[in-house]
Design a protein around this nucleic acid. Sequence first.
DNA 1: ACCTGAACACCGTTCAAGT
DNA 2: ACCTGAACACCGTTCAAGT
Lengths: 194, 194
Amino acid sequence: MGRPALIDRDVVLATGLAVADDHGLDALTMAAVAARLSVTPMALYRHVANKADLLDGIVELLLTEFPPPPVGPWADRLTALADAIRTSAQRHPAVFPLLLQRPATTPRARRARTSVYWALKDAGVAADRIEQTERLISTAILGFAVSEAAGRFRHHSRRQLDADFAQLQALLGSFIESESQIAGAGPGGEGAPG
Amino acid sequence: MGRPALIDRDVVLATGLAVADDHGLDALTMAAVAARLSVTPMALYRHVANKADLLDGIVELLLTEFPPPPVGPWADRLTALADAIRTSAQRHPAVFPLLLQRPATTPRARRARTSVYWALKDAGVAADRIEQTERLISTAILGFAVSEAAGRFRHHSRRQLDADFAQLQALLGSFIESESQIAGAGPGGEGAPG
DNA sequence: ACCTGAACACCGTTCAAGT
DNA sequence: ACCTGAACACCGTTCAAGT
C-alpha cells in the first residue's frame, strides 16, 4: 500500500466552505482549495469526483450546522430550528442559496425534516397533512434565509429583518395551530387534554 | 460615424436567456451567446460591461414577464401576479434563482412591487404595515417558485406542487385579511362599506 | 494508496487593429 | 461606432509518472 494521506474528503469540504465564506462563490476554485491545503489541485480529485461533487458535499456539510432541536414544546423546537437555519445562512451567504437546488433526500437532510415532522405531530397536525405542512413552512423559512443571505434585503436594517422574520414565524405558528386537530391547541407540549 | 450595428443590448440579453433556458446556467458563456448571434465573443463587450452585467440584464429581463395585474378584486390581482411569477420560474429555471440575489431596486422591480402595494392597500392593510406585508408574501412566493424551479421538489408530482402552491396562496390570503383594518373584509374589491 | 507535473480544452477579458 | 484577431491569465480535468 501507499503513503499516509495528507488530506481527506472532510477537510476538502470544510476548506472549500471556508474559501467560499471568506472570498465568495466565484473564488471557490479547485486551485484555491488546494492552495489552502498546501497541495496540488489534482490531489483533490482523489477525494471529490469533480467540482459539482465538491459543491454537493459543501451543501451537505451545511446541514450539519442545524443542531438537533431541544426538548420542549413543539413551538419552541420549531423556533430553535428556524433560528438555526437563519444563522447558518448568515454565516455562509455564498453557498447557502445552493440548498434550494438540491432535493432533501440525503440522510442528514432527512434528519432535519424528521424533527419538523415530530413537532407537527405534537402540535396536533393530522398525519396526512404533516408532509405538506412541512414543505410549506420549510419553503417559507428557507426563502427568507436565502433572500437575506443572497442580498435581496441588503438595503434593509438588521432590526427590520429581525422583525420580518419574527412576523413570518408567527404567521407559520398560527397556520400550524389552524391545522391542529387538538381543540384550542396552544404552543404547548402535547396540546390541551381531552 | 461607423457602420450599422449587427446586435444591441436587448438581443444580447434575450439570447443569453435563451442559451440558459436551453442548456443551463453552466452553458451560459460569452462564447455561446456570441455563437448564437454569429458574432465574435468580443463583440458582446460593446453592449454589456462584462458577464456579471449580462446576468444582471437577464434577471431584469425576467421581470418583464410579470404582466401588469388585471383590474378586479385585490385577491384576484395578487393571485394573477403569483401565478405569473411561478410560470416565469418554470419557464426559466436556470436563471430564475438569481432573482433572490438582487435587491429589487430597479424600475421594473419597483413596478412589480408597487402593484402589490396597491392590492394590499385595497385589502385594507394599514399604510405602515404595507411594506413589511409585501416583503413577507413576496418572499414566500419567490421561495416556492425558486425551490420548484431549482429542483428542490423534483421528486414531487406536478399535482402535489399545484396543491402546495394553492395552500400557500390561501395562507397568505388569510394573513392579509388578518392584517386588514376593514371589518370582515373578504377578497372583494374595496372591502365592506362603513 | 496518494500525490505531482505536464498538458489540454475552455473561459472571461484586454488591446490594437480593421472598416 | 462597431466588430475582429491575437493574446493573456485562469479554470476544470486527463493522464502518466513518481513514492
